[in-house]
Simulated assay, not measured.
Amino acid sequence: MMHTLLPVAFVTLLWWSSTGAVLWLANGRTEQLHFRLLGITLTCAFGFAGLIVASTSDAAWSPYLAFISALAVWGWIEFTFLAGMVTGPHFGDCPPDASERQRFRLAFRTIMHHEFTLLAALIGIWAINHVSGNMMGFYTFALLWLMRLSAKLTIFSGAPTLSIDMMPHRLAHMKTYFRVDRIGPVFWASIVTNSVLLVAAIWCLMNEKISADAHVGLVMLTTLVALAVLEHLFMVLPMRDSALWGWAMSEENDKKAAATAAE
């Protein structure tokens, strides 16, 4: 039982705390961002080192190290995005009369550099893990990437109760590309796909022939998929997931978010 409960608790706690930590760092005072960038860059470097160590070990702790290391790399990319350091070449609002094709093109240009950074990190982690054959770090990062891509397309298509207050004010122009007046078709496609993936992962966990190490890694990935489904549901249900990370959002950002919502 501990081989299941411990990984579930580990992933859930790390997902909650790391998301809050990145939000807290990105929402800090602008003049302090470069100091925070230095700290999170060192964390990212340790993440890559951890990926190398985990990929060459078959010890019981290696899936945990691989997961937290992949999350450290992911955290650097998320911080640089939320801090407005690595976003895209376009910084303007979405024109009110833009067609769907134009809105998609401009929306992509606002986050293009961020997307390319994610892809480069994905390839780099694959190269690290491919040499040893232990792919837990790559699977973790790839799953985070796929789930985030699904969330972005859902937001673009339509998510009526999206917690836009979690975005720093410096990225306010990106909110003009969100559709919050309906539930878009991408949401339903994402929910069905993620749910099928979740059921398939649970079915694999029920296989008695799976090794102990593989079981721990699969439990972690399954938990991550379950959390992704939960995040998608928060986008359309009458509840805000930002309450989970209220401690991570600065008072200044809360006031700006309230002022924006009131306009």
Rank of each mutant, 00 (worst) to 15 (best):
A83W: 10
A226H: 03
C204N: 15
V186T: 13
V216C: 07
L33Q: 15
E115Y: 08
R109Y: 10
W76N: 02
L244H: 03
L171T: 03
E115A: 12
I164Q: 12
L106T: 06
R182Y: 06
A189V: 06
W126P: 04
L25C: 08
A66V: 02
G217K: 07
A60W: 14
E252F: 09
S62C: 13
A172G: 07
A120K: 07
R101F: 09
S195D: 11
A151M: 06
A45E: 07
I111S: 06
A172Q: 09
A226M: 04
L221G: 01
L5H: 03
T87D: 09
T110C: 14
L143T: 09
L146S: 09
E31Y: 11
M239P: 01
V8W: 13
G28Y: 08
M2R: 13
V11D: 04
L65K: 02
K256V: 03
R170E: 05
N27F: 05
S163L: 01
S18L: 12
A107N: 08
E231W: 03
I155C: 14
V86S: 14
M85K: 10
L5E: 02
V131C: 02
L38N: 04
V219C: 04
R109K: 15
K209A: 12
L149C: 06
S99M: 07
L171V: 04
E263C: 10
L233Q: 01
L38W: 03
S250D: 03
V53L: 09
A72R: 10
T193A: 15
G39C: 14
S69I: 00
S163R: 00
L118W: 15
A172D: 14
P89M: 02
I183A: 11
L171Q: 11
Y177P: 07
G92N: 10
R179N: 14
L14A: 14
P238T: 00
F48R: 00
L162H: 11
K209I: 04
T154I: 00
V131A: 08
R109I: 02
L6D: 05
A212Y: 06
H34L: 06
L13K: 05
L162Y: 13
A243H: 12
H215K: 08
H3C: 08
G158E: 06
E208S: 15
L33S: 15
V8E: 07
P96I: 04
V225M: 07
I77L: 15
A45W: 12
I128L: 12
L244G: 03
I210N: 07
V192W: 13
H90K: 08
A59D: 10
I183S: 11
S250L: 00
F79S: 02
L218E: 00
L205C: 05
T161R: 03
S242A: 15
G124S: 08
P238G: 04
T193R: 09
A201H: 04
N207M: 01
R179W: 08
R170M: 03
A83Y: 12
F46I: 04
M220F: 01
F91V: 00
R148D: 12
W15L: 11
A127V: 05
W76Q: 06
R29Q: 04
A59C: 05
I77K: 11
T193C: 11
H232Y: 05
L162T: 02
M235D: 01
S250V: 00
T222F: 06
L5W: 12
G47L: 02
V225P: 04
A228L: 02
I111D: 02
G133R: 13
T161G: 01
F178Q: 00
T41N: 07
M235T: 01
R148W: 11
M135R: 09
H34Y: 09
N194Q: 15
A26T: 01
G246V: 05
